[in-house]
Design a protein around this nucleic acid. Structure first.
Lengths: 336, 336
DNA sequence: ACGTTGGTCGCAAACGGTTTCAGACTTTCG
DNA sequence: CGAAAGTCTGAAACCGTTTGCGACCAACGT
């Protein structure tokens, strides 16, 4: 059986209260007794029971993280950031995967709410009003989206899109396609909007290609539409979609970037491994994870009126091999 | 403030003891009072505090999972399986990422041990003796390796290798390279050994190509060695390594599978997205995750003498596009 | 010499549940 | 109709920790 605070107290010849103080408020006890307590604790290998502590302090030292899909490399990177930051702050993190089902989300929030100090919600698809109701019990911070006045950390999607579009415009592209992600995705909306603004400002034609699932297969399905649209460049909602595009273009023998330039978004690991390597707008996934627990922790420690409730992280275009100068005569119409 | 059991008791006009019984041992209370209690609980939105319950029952309802790298799609899939199974059993899971550092592992185990009923350890690299010492406090089950008599769930790596090698032999390959993973990896050792046995039995030459990090870059680095070895086929430790091979072979203009056949291992999602799609031996990652929590839970519920302590899941070769009949004259020596 | 500090430390009451034990209330049977 | 047996229920102890309050002691100022 694991040693309790009573065991340490007995071994050190003091009361439990003194042990507790010696360990967590060291300057309230005389150095001599503190040393005795510490020695006894070390000797017995005592580690305080966090559940018991949480019972009385109201703080569990646990964080919760809810993501739509752990197998998605984007979220995997975010999770790593969250995990590292939580660990640095001596917190543990519960993780839950909704499997892209919004209905599971509310259940998970309820299940976790009691066991954590705060919750990080990665919920790209759920409608605003649903998010507003969820989690009245715990403090929750949103990641990668905003909804109402919920605290959140996001990335500057619009600016990323601007960078991508200006890059393409500088290469001479005048007609650019955007392969949209899920209709209900918050970040997709952000990216679309940023793109429209920049396109108008830069005088390039923006053609909107349907909504596709944010996966490789989505890109495969979208490729032919993009080609038929006569665009000389395409920006994908996602790196996965971009890779799907690349794959399908390869099958059709359409050279990238000579006939069509492709740029992705997110900069997931495997985007550097494609052929040619994918030009993409990089979003700081790990940093976003870290920033989110930072925000959450400051919220918990300092109350809701400490510092800004929203943080927006910069994005950055990374030019690799899939973008090049526009072909002389645009491949308008049937290109093959 | 969240309602406690006392609030429910007051609302239902009974004592806390009755509320506790009505909710967790329903047939010990008269149906009428049970109904009153349930109504009151629902009315107030009462949810028992798991920490408080754990304090007295000794069970927290939490599981811990330690993996070397969440961003590795292999582990991401495992985590999904673990998470789903835990949730189905009404447990939550703590997750921790060691970032491939064995030293962090012991710390994490210690940190988590107190907060969980059981621990799942995914520790491919740590030496056996280190694993033996770790986690005397909690019940831990190993995943994807065995060490001592620790309970574990693994996959039949050797048989997977046999399938791969027989497939290649049937295609006429007589000289096959194996690109080895990390020297200290348990599953790498398993795969090597299975391969050697099958190679001997099947009369094919097996050439062992160095140890490489189990990533895309490892495959890129290994490719030239493979080509120089004169092998007409290569089996990679990993899908990631296999994809790296594919990429480098593509750059060098060596056609796959016409000049060289490639087979990977794990069947991670993106292996179906390569060009051509990767032939690979599929390991049931989700199922392994589920099986591991199944084993862990049965260990917790029935004690250590219930059922087998080890489970081995089958692997299966998935033939896709990167394997074909051996070239007539093997590309021995400089091929280009 | 004596109240007043100020610094240490112990006692005991929480926190929110579960579980033992015994009492109260039925029911059944002689 | 009374006692024995059985069924429900409540009081209280307990899990391991924190913390308010008071006791004790040395030093200090007057």
């Amino acid at each position: 059986m694991a040693p309790t605070i009573r065991d340490v107290a007995r071994a050190a010849g003091v009361s439990q209260a003194t042990v507790s103080r010696a360990l967590s408020m060291p300057d309230l006890v005389r150095p001599a007794t503190r040393a005795r307590v510490e020695a006894a604790a070390r000797e017995l290998g005592y580690r305080p029971n966090r559940a018991a502590r949480g019972l009385i302090t109201g703080r569990t030292g646990n964080l919760g993280l809810i993501v739509p899909d752990l197998a998605n490399p984007f979220f995997a990177a975010v999770v790593k950031g969250v995990q590292a930051a939580a660990r640095a702050a001596d917190h543990s993190v519960f993780i839950a995967d909704t499997d892209e089902e919004a209905s599971a989300e509310a259940d998970l929030v309820r299940a976790l709410a009691k066991q954590v100090d705060g919750l990080i919600l990665c919920s790209p698809r759920a409608p605003d009003e649903e998010l507003a109701s969820v989690g009245a019990d715990t403090t929750v911070v949103l990641m990668n989206r905003v909804a109402g006045d919920r605290p959140s950390v996001t990335v500057d999607n619009a600016d990323g899109m601007r960078q991508a579009l200006e890059h393409l415009a500088a290469l001479g592209h005048r007609r650019v396609a955007f392969v949209a992600g899920p209709r209900t995705s918050w970040s997709n909306a952000q990216r679309e909007e940023g793109l429209h603004r920049s396109a108008e400002a830069g005088g390039v034609d923006l053609v909107h290609v349907g909504h596709f699932p944010p996966q490789f297969e989505g890109g495969v399905a979208a490729a032919d539409l993009v080609v038929a649209s006569g665009a000389t460049a395409v920006i994908a909602y996602n790196d996965l979609v971009a890779l799907g595009l690349l794959s399908r273009l390869g099958v059709r023998g359409i050279p990238v970037p000579d006939a069509i330039s492709v740029v992705g978004c997110d900069d997931i690991g495997m985007s550097a491994m494609s052929h040619p390597a994918l030009t993409t707008v990089s979003v700081p996934k790990r940093a976003a994870g870290r920033a989110t627990v930072g925000l959450l922790l400051s919220l918990l420690n300092a109350g809701p009126d400490a510092g800004p409730m929203h943080r927006e992280l910069p994005t950055q275009l990374i030019v690799r091999g899939t973008t090049g100068v526009a072909p002389i005569s645009p491949t308008k119409g049937s290109s093959r």
